[in-house]
Simulated assay, not measured.
Amino acid sequence: MADAKLVTVSKPKVGGAVWRAPLGTTLPTDATAELDKAFKSLGYISEDGMTNANSPESDSIKAWGGDTVHTYQTEKPDTFQFQLIEALNAEVLKAVYRDDNVTGDLATGLTVKANAKEQQDACWVVETILNGDTVKRVVVPCAKITEIEDIVYKDDEALGYGVTISATPDSAGNTHYEYLKKGGA
């Protein structure tokens, strides 16, 4: 039987929805446990929210005459796309440009170096609130930024960094985990 109470929308958790920590940080294994102190908030993301692309890609083998006789999975990328809009947040800049390319702070002077160094893997957590006071936590054990959209400097638009992170499998073969708990918000 269909149940309209199970239909939901997703809102960011108050205090930050996207968190990042160095690879190897202890990961949460439920929806509500306190995050390890190594996780740093990346603050607000744009009103477009986050998009998770997690669809298998396939190919097929055809027999003489055109019949498809076998379909097989070629890959199953797991990516997350969002725009970080706290352009003055040092943790955002470290995520976008690499930890070792950002030094200082806003009060004394912040330096950001842009170069061709490969992005580093990290642990990521996204926390959302669903209908009915339900918490949903998405834990990505290992992912790195694999795409950065053009950075637009404009007087009527938030300066931000549209990023795509691509997850790679952990030791159990999983690219991300989702934990939900009613009453956890």
Rank of each mutant, 00 (worst) to 15 (best):
D99N: 09
T134S: 14
T175Y: 13
H176N: 05
Q119Y: 07
N115M: 05
T168P: 14
S166V: 10
F82Q: 06
K182I: 10
K11H: 07
Q73W: 01
G132W: 11
G43C: 13
D67F: 08
L27P: 00
D150M: 08
E147Y: 08
A95F: 06
T25I: 05
A33V: 02
G15C: 02
E91T: 03
Y177F: 11
I45G: 09
W64S: 14
V92N: 00
Y161W: 00
T108N: 12
D156S: 02
S46E: 15
D100M: 04
D170Q: 02
V92A: 06
P12M: 05
N101G: 03
A122D: 15
L130P: 06
T103G: 03
P28M: 01
V152Q: 14
I129H: 07
A33E: 06
A31P: 02
Y177K: 02
V125R: 10
W64H: 14
T71A: 04
L106Q: 04
E47Q: 13
S166H: 01
L42N: 04
G162F: 00
T8R: 02
Q81W: 05
L42S: 06
A185M: 00
K113H: 08
E147A: 13
K144L: 08
W19G: 00
G162Q: 04
D133F: 11
Q73F: 15
T164Y: 07
G66N: 07
G173H: 07
T26R: 11
L23F: 11
V125Q: 05
Y177M: 02
M50V: 13
R20A: 08
D59G: 10
G104P: 08
N89H: 00
K5M: 13
D105A: 14
A122W: 13
L23E: 13
S10E: 04
D3L: 00
T79W: 08
V18R: 04
V14M: 09
A17Q: 07
C142V: 03
L93V: 09
A33K: 09
A38W: 14
S60E: 15
P22R: 12
T26F: 10
D105E: 03
K37P: 12
I151K: 12
L130I: 03
P28R: 00
A116H: 02
A143I: 15
T26H: 12
A63I: 09
P169L: 02
S58W: 14
T68G: 11
S171G: 11
V126Q: 13
P12I: 01
V140K: 01
G15Y: 01
K144F: 15
A172N: 10
D105S: 04
T29Y: 05
R137P: 03
I165W: 08
G65R: 00
V112R: 05
G183T: 00
T175I: 05
R137K: 03
